[in-house]
Design a binder for these strands. Sequence first.
DNA 1: TCTGGGGTCCTAGGACCC
DNA 2: TCTGGGGTCCTAGGACCC
Length: 422
Amino acid sequence: MTSLFGIVDCNNFYASCERVFDPSLEGKPIVVLSNNDGCIIARSNEAKALGLQMGQPLFEARELIEQNQVQVFSSNYELYGDMSSRVVETLTRFSPNVEVYSIDESFLDLGDFYRTDLNAYAREIRDTVGQWLGLPVAVGVAPTKTLAKIANRISKKPEKADGVLVLTDGRHIEAALRRTEAGDVWGIGRRYAKKLAGYGVHTAWDLRNVTDAFAKKHLTVVGLRTVRELRGEACIELETVPPAKQNICTSRSFGTAITEVDGIAEALTTHVIRCATKLRRQKSKAGAMTVFAMTSRFAQEGEVYSNCRTVTFDTPTDSEPELIRHALKALREIYRPGFRYRKTGLLLLDLVPADSVQLSLLDTVDREKHAQLMQTLDGLRERFGHGTVKYATQGTEEKWKNKQEKLSPCYTTRLEDLIRAK
DNA sequence: TCTGGGGTCCTAGGACCC
DNA sequence: TCTGGGGTCCTAGGACCC
């Protein structure tokens, strides 16, 4: 049986989301900034054409932005997340099996659709999302996920630009691989691209034609899978149920530098709560935690400091009071006065299913009581919002908070932000 | 002065055991 | 000059993705 995959990818997703609710932005250059309004992380086509780069620091791009009246937005994940789930909802009408790959990309299993007019079907997907949500998408279809990604990529090229490409014919696949650089193949990053170039492997077609032994030696078994996928052999399956995460991490840069341990503790406490909430949502408990704090990577020599501490728990836990206590203790151990801290955060590790936790006889924590408290807090936050209930160590000033000076309204998730029609 | 955040998988090498 | 051999577990580091 031959496999067939579709990938649907929202073009310039964050920028396009901003545009949906403000049509006056149509045709104008837009950029969306990273968490701390630090870097450019999304650009409309017009912004790309101006030469604004992905990951470029805002201060570097300021002149170009002002000269061209580029519209600038802080990232609004509440809005993008909600728009993303609406896209996925729409896609489930086109295939019974959808894998949500990232906030703006989904794979579709089209295994049973070989007999239909695939081009027409792909166009219908594109047009439906466009009509229902106002978001431009590109659709690639091919026998493997890696080839589908290539089809998707080419479908967005200016000379094609209609956002649909089906690659099922061998000659079309060869032509597509010949015009794709090896470094643009899904799974081949900058390091591997450079390494491959040293061996004369420049295009996806070259890569398709290396021996298995070469692929395994230089790119590990992961790269070998990529090579096989380029040959049309499906090695990467559709994952319709996301596997439980093995680590959960929450960290943020501060809006301004912090020197005192208490200020860092306020931020860390808030991160612990976010992280523990994610943990409980996937019904896991953590057996260990790593806490870290650091100055800017770009600080002058002698002013750079970064440290972490890992704590192992006797009994895996998802309780906030317990996690906060451990986190703050670890923070005080790694804190060194005299540095300008820019970032703190934590990782929860050794995750196990919540219902499989072995209780220890020597346990001093009343786990039943903690579980009830967490359930109550989760319920309150769900109904009234994240900041409803706070711990004392979170403080009230939130001096560490991100800059988010250009935040757009949460059009789809907050009643008070609902768009108004005149 | 200003520089994102959150993940995965694989491999090599050391520690330890019999 | 020779200096056992093989297995397991853990960790750090390197690669990748969005």
